[in-house]
Design a binder for these strands. Sequence first.
DNA 1: AATGAATGAGCCTTCATTCAT
DNA 2: CATGAATGAAGGCTCATTCAT
Lengths: 193, 193, 193, 193
Amino acid sequence: MKKDKPKYKQIIDAAIIVIAENGYHQSQVSKIAKQAGVADGTIYLYFKNKEDILISVFEEKMEMFAENLKVILKENTTSSEKLFKMIENHFNVLAEDHHLATVTQLELRQSNLALRLRINEILKNYLVLLDTILKEGIENGEFDPTIDIRLARQMVFGTIDETTTTWVMNEYKYDLVALTDKVHRLLFKGLKA
Amino acid sequence: MKKDKPKYKQIIDAAIIVIAENGYHQSQVSKIAKQAGVADGTIYLYFKNKEDILISVFEEKMEMFAENLKVILKENTTSSEKLFKMIENHFNVLAEDHHLATVTQLELRQSNLALRLRINEILKNYLVLLDTILKEGIENGEFDPTIDIRLARQMVFGTIDETTTTWVMNEYKYDLVALTDKVHRLLFKGLKA
Amino acid sequence: MKKDKPKYKQIIDAAIIVIAENGYHQSQVSKIAKQAGVADGTIYLYFKNKEDILISVFEEKMEMFAENLKVILKENTTSSEKLFKMIENHFNVLAEDHHLATVTQLELRQSNLALRLRINEILKNYLVLLDTILKEGIENGEFDPTIDIRLARQMVFGTIDETTTTWVMNEYKYDLVALTDKVHRLLFKGLKA
Amino acid sequence: MKKDKPKYKQIIDAAIIVIAENGYHQSQVSKIAKQAGVADGTIYLYFKNKEDILISVFEEKMEMFAENLKVILKENTTSSEKLFKMIENHFNVLAEDHHLATVTQLELRQSNLALRLRINEILKNYLVLLDTILKEGIENGEFDPTIDIRLARQMVFGTIDETTTTWVMNEYKYDLVALTDKVHRLLFKGLKA
DNA sequence: AATGAATGAGCCTTCATTCAT
DNA sequence: CATGAATGAAGGCTCATTCAT
């Protein structure tokens, strides 16, 4: 399996650094190869083309969010608590890797439409888990049964995403994770029964 | 004043059509010139460079949002009502011009970081008005005084934006304006005292 | 009409020189542009792509052969004389332009199959005229009526082509045109009634 | 001797199949290796480089033509009969192996000049035998003593080659061997005393 | 002998911008 | 004011060949 070979991860990591430091449009394949310490051609032994590198960056990292979220969902707590943990996890992962945050919040959005649609596909797996939290909350009486799940999901994700992007655009100069409580309170208030 | 000359608006409108129909990366200056019915070189008599066209597209159209919003703010109603009108206005403008919606929600986001920062500048004028609604609501006791204004603004704008983008990505196949009530209820619930 | 603009012919002529001097696979577009005294991009204002340059080279020059041949066919002489004039014309044109000879006999044949099929299309116009000579000769009793026109055409063209290629491969070190008589006698003997 | 090892012929045969099926420019070394059932690197244990494979393909197959021709020359018949047998043999070998015909008539001609000069060297052995037929014919009074041997050779080979190439380009849709008689008659008429 | 992962040089084409008319 | 022909920099990808195992 290609994904398990060391060079695969090496290139993914190099891509994140190069894109974060140079911007999406200034991230030539040769630059990524150099950062990864491999020849240009080696890239193409592990990725179909440049776009495939970017999709894979997103796929690999998004998996982290989803995996963490799945663990959270298994815990025996309230839906409010699960929502809190989800926001916290999201903020934590990005706060710990500024390069990754820049790439997902700013740079990758400059990609062409085809790539962004592909990225949205990957994102869906994550949003399905958010839906699970919302549905559970409605069932157990914590959340308002009259809310529209799709809209609620868009509010939660839109708020988290907007908050993170603003933080990145302000060059990480305040503590993102410290906002968890406030963001949670705001969102929970909108959702609660 | 350049902005008042007919060709200025002619080029702006051509740009929106070309970008909506061809995508950001397939919108060459020559294509915009052709659509506008002018020579390539003429573009440069009205705009500094390609980026300047795109910024101007956003500027011109964003003004519409802001102007409408200012009128709303002058009306003597509740803050909840003003929030409702703001959402409705936002959805209305974009629902009435699918080309514009595609351009602002999908295509313009593919532009480089410098352009996006400039776009954010323009957006700020609009967000300041949103802040006004929120502050007013807190002062008159409609909104929860403990909420963080910035976060609340991010929630409101993030939700509206995410809702619109989802609608565009679903190819306008449902009625965006009809969502106003639900979106307002959800957001108001999160904000109210 | 693009073909009438001076730069069109300028680029065609540059291409012949560059290909003859560097070989087909070492004739980069940038080299042709430089030889023509224009920018790389200018090439693409006159030609669709690199292959289009090569096809046009052949088209333009093949026209010369065909035009000359048409004049010959109008003259009121024997078919044997027409055959003679055709061979002479063919040898003359190539003997007068060694660059062109190298390109048509050696370099262009290294092109890919698609291009060669296209070249064959162009060649057909020339071969049709040869067929006219052959048919006329059969009708007026000069040529053997039992010969197969297609085979006869292949013999005539194959012999001329093989003779020319051999001459080019021997680096033009003998007089090609001086062979006209012998070649004609050989071919006429095979064709005559 | 390398040539006697099974992998040598295995690779030669694989090359003919790959080139015939994919075209000269789409016949990468890795594809030939795969078809031959060996690793890429193994190719280089038997051949100096890619060009060497192609030269060897031609060498091996050309030997067949020459060997057959030598047998023909030893037979005690007229020169006309020997010419007939030579044409027949040429057509037969290629008609029996369409892959080989495609490779020699179309694909290998796309190779670079250096390779084609090398191929011509190999061809010479074959053409020398043709010269023998011609000289013999002149000596025994069957052929016209005034013909130029070199030109006659070019006529014979040019006609055979042109006939075969046309047949390949027409996708073998008629019987090449059936043309032997007509081609022979045409050529003999040109050569006879 | 055999493998196959790794190498890295090389090139066609696009398109924002200029400037002579 | 308006034109549009000309410019030229820039980069993703392929594939013959090598060499450590």
